[in-house]
Design a protein around this nucleic acid. Structure first.
Lengths: 193, 193
DNA sequence: GCACTTAGTGTACGTTCGTCCACATGACGA
DNA sequence: TCGTCATGTGGACGAACGTACACTAAGTGC
């Protein structure tokens, strides 16, 4: 039998020292943004999602902006990592092109979460220069990854095209002919696969 | 000497019947969104910007969603109108291509407002299907405008490319070589100007 | 000019928000 | 074991929010 009164079981026996706390908050923040948008994100919702006390929010982050910055930084980095790894795995321009086509198809079809988070970030970056660093770094890494297989100018064009194709595919409710995207990419790369 | 107390002069002697009121609210709403984002838009801010009483908000619009829908509808329509007019003015694919290149250059350089509002709309559409109708109609009109000069498949590709180029140009802080965008567009159209 | 309808408004309510700070708690050297 | 310190917390506070509704003002037929 414990000699101190137990904290309410529902809150759980939170250990005081929790080294992953900050990371958990960031992860929870991304989930909240994905569900409610930046517009609907609040310290309270994030705290609830991460199962941490409200006070932890201002303890770990100076304010909403810092939290958003950290969350989107993590998001952009992880997406960049994934893209870079895929490009690194390709063994030549032809295979790289095939992978790019697959990415455009898959992104549009599957990942709603990715789409929402990306746009929330772009929207933030469009208005507040403080978030431009994030998008800049992301774009720079995308281009660098593409430059493994294409010349710099083509890499830039491809990067922009991927962006536009992904957006239009995702937002359009009518079904798309996948061949159109593949053809567009081929016209940019100039490869005759 | 008036027998009734005057309303405060600062608020002005608002006429009761004001047929443009709804439109003024919509216009003010767009300005608020451009400045504070959807996240920072409230009935109160819009009412202040439009110089109408708070009660007018719920009188003219059932809620924030309806207001946003009306505002973005107006925005998308006006942008579509502009683009369509420009395409209609072009006298052949070569001129159309030149105009498209100019649009990409200008949009990135000048219109911060356009960029912000566009992304706010996309973000909304990405999360809430209720706003997809707006983006769908917008995209459909863009494609139709391009189809004045290009075949349907090329028009789709061009539309997506314009999107991507505009975004990347606007968000990138490093200066861009305009020739890259022009070259990308040429690769898609296949024209040898 | 009066009675009645319609259009529009001011305000108060309950909710949710971010921030703050007095305090509780675990870590740790003596 | 105890005292001290840094870490972390709970709850209170004022500001801002959307909504609802009793009301005023303008329009309209007589």
């Amino acid at each position: 039998m414990p000699d101190r009164p137990q904290p309410p079981a529902s809150r759980g026996n939170r250990r005081r020292h929790d080294p992953d706390r900050r990371e958990r908050i960031i992860a929870a923040c991304l989930e909240v943004i994905a569900e409610f948008g930046v517009a609907g994100t609040s310290h309270r919702k994030v705290a609830a999602a991460a199962d941490v006390p409200l006070g932890s929010m201002t303890y770990h982050f100076s304010g909403m902006d810092e939290l958003l910055h950290a969350a989107f930084g993590r998001f952009a980095t992880s997406v960049s990592d994934g893209f870079d790894a895929m490009m690194a795995a390709a063994e030549g321009p032809e295979e790289a092109e095939r992978i790019v086509v697959a990415i455009v198809d898959d992104t549009a079809a599957e990942s709603h979460r990715f789409l929402v988070l990306t746009h929330e970030l772009y929207t933030l970056a469009a208005r507040e220069p403080a978030f431009r660093g994030l998008t800049n770094a992301w774009m720079a890494r995308s281009r660098a990854a593409l430059e493994r297989h294409f010349d710099p100018a083509t890499a830039r064009m491809l990067d922009a095209l991927i962006e536009g194709l992904t957006i239009h595919r995702a937002l359009d409710t009518e079904p798309h002919d996948p061949a159109v995207a593949a053809d567009a990419i081929r016209r940019i790369t100039g490869l005759r696969t």
